[in-house]
Design a protein around this nucleic acid. Structure first.
Lengths: 217, 217
DNA sequence: GCAAAAATGAGTATTAATACCTAGTATCAA
DNA sequence: TTGATACTAGGTATTAATACTCATTTTTGC
């Protein structure tokens, strides 16, 4: 385990230059931290990690190309020693759970104040989990509310994600079926399964929830 | 008209501390610019503008409380001399058009590099419009493609926005009707009107487009 | 005050979606 | 090899949504 007194190397992966600048600014304020690399997309990140691995990775969830949970999964698998902190706008407990399952240690919102961020980095560096307070509380509420384990598995399969994406882009079940060479009934079944998993009862709220969770677009 | 040699005062309205920091960092690099105020939401912004008006306002579109187009409309009406630059993630031409109609002079994406941002500020200060290149090109394409003026009016009325919001949060037409003390048929009519305005044909894509445009949540 | 736009409501028809079911095949991990 | 999941597809029934048209009243802007 790392000593507290040593300098912690941090890498940033975020496609917004402004957020990158902001992070540099905030982290520069702490003598304990050193930013070693900045990446703007998943491809750059994976290429860069081959060369050099930081102790902590601040990972934006919504970057062009790979989705957040995919990228976190890949990084976590290739470099299990890197402590990943998900940095995102998505304040949704389903999404937190998904990311945690992928091995992410910290979850911080982009609306967070700077002390929060530094605290999160220090915490995950000790190997502990860090979830922002508001989200922790929401998760508690959810846990209490769901006696019947409703919120068990919000993870969608590959096919389900594919169909969800097509739903959001205007296609009807029939059209999706034609496109994917499936029966309309198959698509309808997938559709209903997705809705059950996300706990909604119509297409409008399905897309709404999915977008908030970062599952589409 | 302002002289080029004078210092330009800039205010920032953005609910993300990280983006605020990033903007400060970027703008500090230019001797021509001075940041006079930072606001985190629409309420703060309106209160602050009563005290002091900057020449240029960098306005985030998605802040808690008011929606972006509302806020731009209010500021533009109360302080017509302030040059507003919309700063946002929404790279959608419908939205650009809506904002322009509200009197916004510049439209810059958060993914923009810093030179772009400074260039935009300088440009709107001269009273000229500044729209980021990628969006300008999209608008051209759209203009060429739409012979029949399809993209005429994507503006929704207050009632329509209200109903859209409720649609995104799981309610059926009947439920919305009950909630707002309306006939189911009225809600259905609004619903269809909204879809016509946004150019979609079902609820799923409606919510998808509306969220991308920042019209809901 | 007048014209325009928004909000309300309905008629009628067709299509799509939702809510249950069962069930075979394939794939993958323990 | 044996469950567990995912993927596929169909049966049946009900409900909701979509696509048109039209009409009345209320707000709003000038």
């Amino acid at each position: 385990m790392k000593q507290q007194s040593e300098i912690i190397s941090v890498a940033i992966a975020d496609d917004h230059p402004l957020v990158q600048k902001g992070l540099q600014n905030v982290l520069a304020g702490s003598a304990m931290l050193q930013i070693t690399d900045c990446y703007s997309n998943g491809k750059e990140l994976l290429a860069g990690l081959k060369q050099r691995q930081p102790e902590v990775l601040l990972l934006d969830i919504q970057m062009p190309g790979q989705t957040g949970d995919e990228l976190a999964g890949i990084v976590g698998e290739l470099y299990p020693n890197i402590k990943i902190i998900a940095l995102t706008n998505l304040d949704n407990i389903f999404y937190v759970k998904t990311m945690m399952r992928k091995g992410v240690l910290g979850y911080v919102l982009k609306t967070a104040r700077e002390e929060i961020l530094i605290d999160a980095i220090m915490t995950v560096c000790r190997g502990e989990k860090y979830i922002e307070r508001s989200l922790r509380e929401k998760m508690m509420d959810d846990h209490v509310a769901s006696k019947k384990q409703l919120s068990a598995s919000p993870i969608l399969s590959r096919r389900e994600k594919e169909i969800l994406q097509l739903m959001a882009s205007s296609l009807t079940s029939q059209e999706i079926a034609d496109k994917l060479f499936l029966s309309k009934r198959t698509v309808e079944n997938h559709r209903l399964n997705i809705m059950t998993k996300l706990g909604v009862h119509n297409a409008a709220s399905l897309v709404s929830v999915a977008m908030k969770m970062g599952l589409v677009e």
